[in-house]
């Protein structure tokens, strides 16, 4: 059996196979063991456990059946004149040939392109290290750009050169629970008793909230006692029995 090595990653499709079978290996169609080619191809597919390559397989089978027909025409006597079909075998073969000729151009062009790429691959351009410092294109250069590629490039440039957002205009509120606990302890050390509203009433809501948490924390440790006469009213904070160390 003719060994047929098909690597699916590099499988070039039926045209490539046909070109190499018929042109490179210099065999006449009459000598091509089509059955063996098909059997080998299917074996290969099965061995590889390949499913889902129906596009490749159907194209392959289509081409092989076309070749079978062409081959049988070569072996059999010509059909009687006047026998008409939708597409005569001759027309089918002409179409096949036309597609083969067309395909072969791109196959050769791909080789040419690869050579160009290899020649060019020996050159190095300076790494765009200073690219980040390149000024962003003025807005008027970007707006109204109808060329999709150009727009895409400019967007890519913006994405590549993005910086962390400037937050300098935002005031940073420095508040943490431990700090509020220290403040409450300090107040109690000096005054033994103070009004929450008087001390924290003018602070931002976040600071007030954390101060309440600080009170709750100290309350659970027994360091403070709190009293509130009415809902949302002022809280009077008194030193507890524990934690006189502060």
């Amino acid at each position: 059996m003719r060994p047929l090595e098909l690597d699916l990653d590099v499988y070039q499709g039926p045209f490539d196979l046909l070109l190499s079978l018929v042109l490179k290996e210099e065999i006449d169609l009459l000598e091509v063991p089509l059955f063996e080619v098909i059997a080998a191809y299917l074996d290969e597919m099965e061995d590889a456990g390949v499913v889902g390559y129906w596009d490749e397989m159907t194209e392959f089978l289509l081409l092989m059946s076309l070749l079978l027909e062409v081959k049988s025409r070569l072996l059999l006597p010509k059909p009687p004149a006047g026998f008409e079909e939708e597409l005569t075998p001759e027309e089918a073969r002409d179409q096949l040939l036309a597609r083969l000729f067309e395909y072969s151009k791109f196959k050769a062009a791909a080789l040419g392109l690869r050579e160009m790429g290899e020649t060019n691959a020996g050159c190095l351009m300076r790494a765009p290290a200073s690219q980040k410092r390149r000024r962003v294109a003025p807005l008027e250069d970007i707006v109204g750009t109808e060329d999709a590629m150009s727009l895409r490039e400019k967007l890519a440039y913006l994405v590549e050169n993005r910086r962390p957002p400037d937050t300098s205009h935002l005031a940073l509120i420095k508040v943490e629970l431990q700090r509020q606990i220290r403040i409450v302890r300090g107040m109690l050390a000096r005054h033994r008793r103070f009004s929450f509203n008087r001390v924290f009433g003018s602070e931002p809501p976040l600071v007030q909230a954390l101060s309440v948490f600080a009170l709750l924390d100290l309350l659970s440790r027994g360091e403070v006692r709190v009293a509130q006469r009415e809902l949302f009213g002022d809280i009077v904070v008194t030193a507890g029995d524990v934690g006189k160390t502060a």
């Binding site: 590099v10 499709g13 791909a110 392109l113 790429g117 020649t119 691959a121 050159c123």
Partner: peptide
């Protein structure tokens, strides 16, 4: 860009840009 004649020296120190030989024949087509 660097002269391709200097490819050997340049590639000793720097990684040359990807070349097309890493593309499969199907991709090149």
């Amino acid at each position: 860009r660097t002269n391709p004649l200097c490819r050997t020296a340049v590639s000793a120190l720097f990684e040359l840009p990807e070349d097309s030989s890493r593309l499969s024949a199907a991709a090149m087509e």
